[in-house]
Design a protein around this nucleic acid. Sequence first.
DNA 1: CCACGCTATTTGTCGGACTATTATAAAGCT
DNA 2: AGCTTTATAATAGTCCGACAAATAGCGTGG
Lengths: 252, 252
Amino acid sequence: MSKAKEAGVGGDGEREEGFSGRIHGSIARSLGVAIVSGKHQPGDVLNNEIDASEQLQVSRSAYREAIRILAAKGLVESRPKTGTRVSPRTRWSLLDPEVLAWFFESEPSEAFLQELYELRMIVEPAAAALAAERRDDTQLERMRAALVAMQHHTLGTEEGRAADRDFHDTVLSAANNAPLFTLSSSIGAAVRWTTIFKQRDRELARDPMPEHWKVFDAIAAGRADQARQAMEKLVSLALEDTHAAIDRRPGR
Amino acid sequence: MSKAKEAGVGGDGEREEGFSGRIHGSIARSLGVAIVSGKHQPGDVLNNEIDASEQLQVSRSAYREAIRILAAKGLVESRPKTGTRVSPRTRWSLLDPEVLAWFFESEPSEAFLQELYELRMIVEPAAAALAAERRDDTQLERMRAALVAMQHHTLGTEEGRAADRDFHDTVLSAANNAPLFTLSSSIGAAVRWTTIFKQRDRELARDPMPEHWKVFDAIAAGRADQARQAMEKLVSLALEDTHAAIDRRPGR
DNA sequence: CCACGCTATTTGTCGGACTATTATAAAGCT
DNA sequence: AGCTTTATAATAGTCCGACAAATAGCGTGG
């Protein structure tokens, strides 16, 4: 009866969200989504461990490990007697890949998307400039291959989008700055989701390739300033398209 | 024998390296430091949970929670049968406040410091520009107060350094971009650490205040471009000073 | 030589007892 | 009355020992 794996006990809404392999992971995810989506607001106190683990039909240990994950990402804070409460937003690790994924699981606010793009607009042009000065031949070749694949598959396919991400990742990594590179996951997330938005709205007019090639050429030529400007242009065009897609979006 | 709590067999005894209030936290910290300092390299497999928890004289649960924390920050990855192994550096959440703190606990490499500064050079001028356009009066007043305090206490005191950090934090927050603001902890870390270097060495020749006031004035006047340039100057001067201090550092 | 199943190892999960911490309320002191 | 101290109760934290699930690597059989 207390076994959690017997998922199918007909009853209430039980486990809607699929899985994540390990139980603590899926609990962390579902709680994380509830927090970033505003269902649990900063300052709110979660049920105590015993009640919560009972409701979720998992052991207290598994629930606690989930809480540790959330605490490590700054989403919650636990103290004896007071319980576990949602931390203020300023403490959240918004750039953590998992946190970002949780944001995108419940459609994020347009404002948040906007902020991510703003960050991208700050980081990527600078990264492109550094990449122009520091890239090695291997990275350059990888960028070229990514763009060729992207051109061939188009952004309508998952392969094309993967190639797009690979291009941007390689630029970031060519900047040769580890902390900067960790932002690639955040930026990749922004790129991925907004690209999906745009594709969702069939008539994506613009061909993204010319601007991509300009960035590539500038990096290949070692022209930092030119690379920065080209990337600025690329990002701002992408932002425009995304805005248009969102505006046209039905229902919201 | 396996009781961990009987710390004081005959008085206080020696302080086990590592405290942090909670056990899982201190284990995570000590393991985290071992990892970021290179004592455990990427790909290395940690002892299995039973052995490890026995060696550390803690319960397996506490050890597991520590591992969950490290996994949440991308430092390790666990799988049945294979064990827990250190993840490749590209997965580390280098911008996470705790990870950064672990870096600074064992003196970080000069290259890493350099990279953090580079990031700062990218982010802060952009943030200053945004702040010039978006700051409200409260934030402006807070910046002014921080600079006044900084001027009064000087960077030789902890209060003065705290005021410095507060100024930079407020600029970041005035940019009104949540993901951007989460970088403040990283930047703050870089600022703090390098400031200590400079102070450690000798009387800091340069008076940092004029550049700070220029940034403030530009933000107050709402001049984005001017704010960006002033901040660029401020950061690059700080970098220069830091380089000089490091070069002059004995034993290196 | 390859496919397939077996097994040993390791993480994952469980439940239940006990400890430590601390916010809050009660009691005591000035 | 107002402040300090102590007691209480609630909650996270820790420990233990057992069992379940996953899987890398090996051995067996085709």
